[in-house]
Design a binder for these strands. Sequence first.
DNA 1: TCATGTGAAGGAATTCACAGCC
DNA 2: GGCTGTGAATTCCTTCACATGA
Lengths: 248, 248
Amino acid sequence: MTDQNSPLPSASLSRLALYLRAAQELEQRGVLATSSRELAELAGVQPFHVRKDLAYLGRFGRRGQGYAVALLRRELTRSLGLNRRWQYIVVGLDLLGQALLKADWGEEFVCVGLFDPSPQQQGRRLDVPALPQPFTLGQLPPVPRTLRVRPLSELADFVQKQAVDMAFLCVPTEISSHTAQQLQQAGIRGILNFGPALNPPHLPQGGHEENDTIVEQVDFQVSLQRLAFGLLRQSIPQLTPTLLENPT
Amino acid sequence: MTDQNSPLPSASLSRLALYLRAAQELEQRGVLATSSRELAELAGVQPFHVRKDLAYLGRFGRRGQGYAVALLRRELTRSLGLNRRWQYIVVGLDLLGQALLKADWGEEFVCVGLFDPSPQQQGRRLDVPALPQPFTLGQLPPVPRTLRVRPLSELADFVQKQAVDMAFLCVPTEISSHTAQQLQQAGIRGILNFGPALNPPHLPQGGHEENDTIVEQVDFQVSLQRLAFGLLRQSIPQLTPTLLENPT
DNA sequence: TCATGTGAAGGAATTCACAGCC
DNA sequence: GGCTGTGAATTCCTTCACATGA
């Protein structure tokens, strides 16, 4: 079946991103065909996951053969909405923000602006990744870019002139909720939030609501505490990790 | 009921970390009692989530009243295994690694070493957060510490002398799987991995296996692509996001 | 014979609604 | 009355096993 209203399960969506990375890697290595087994290994999931997830997008596998890598990559790119350009700003340029600037997000994502609430940061100029040259096959050296760090007061104007699809939010905890509201009011509809949950819950968490702002959380601390708990569990083989010992 | 073999659901575990953060915040504000509604708001989840999750740990709520903040914080801390000290190393000290060094992970987590595969980084000295003074109530100024960035060749020896519970892995993509193996061979049983899935799947992904290494993934790119997909969905209100249009 | 695609079974998480206690 | 704790219902996800088609 095709995709109808495509109720692509949330869990599958996360894994599709992993398959795309795997497909890109295979393509770069010059591999032409692959299998659900190989993809599963690269993505760190189970083979039946791969088959089921990919089946949501259509059927571009060949039974008995596997998947054609190039086709796979194209379809994943399309399905994930990565055949268009997404423009983002980085809000908060302490070390984490700077690290995000240098990170490789894929060519589809381009940084168009830098903002910081702190006067110390404002006015600084920072290097950002070069724009991908659209249809230039010749190996021109990429053009370096630098952007100025702006105060948040310029945000609303900026968003009116530039299309800004999303913001990477990495300001200190104390002001993150407030800053998120500023972003929303400026008309930004997507926030990738590093740091604790944004509590004024006007913004639905993962909700694909009407036309509200979507917040996607990246929470290091939760992952760390999950890890600690896991280690605790396995270091005490049989016994329960000292939870409660109350009666009843 | 108490916790038996506590098969604490994985989804609940993640949320418990959020409640702990909320409880700490409330305690700092001087709030004595709270409710599932308030906690839910702070954590960005639903009230029945809070009640059900907390019920896994026992019953320290008072019906009709709510939860005592101090008790709540204590129980959450205990249950998550945060009443002991966890020692970590940071592997890879480019911008992201440096950002992680400065981040606030909670007092229970202390950095004991820095490692980097690149000779340019080796030998550098970096500031790390001061140790929490255990039973000192007096406000002595915290003692600053600096640590030297070591080559990975020193890792095995280091782990033998120092207790190292976990590693934050943030080296470039190309070497991350290889580096993870080095960590595992040196005897490190927990890895918080920033960057793509570690593909030699000797390490089970989230598996609480025998006594194997536990890997917890923090994958920015997946979150970003989830966000992009979400935006795509809502910007085309009724229509399916250009997925497939092939015949049956 | 091979590996995909898929119905169906099983398990996990979310959600509801209300009983129980303050 | 108010809010927790919890069975029961629902929905979602994972897992299996096999039919399907190259």
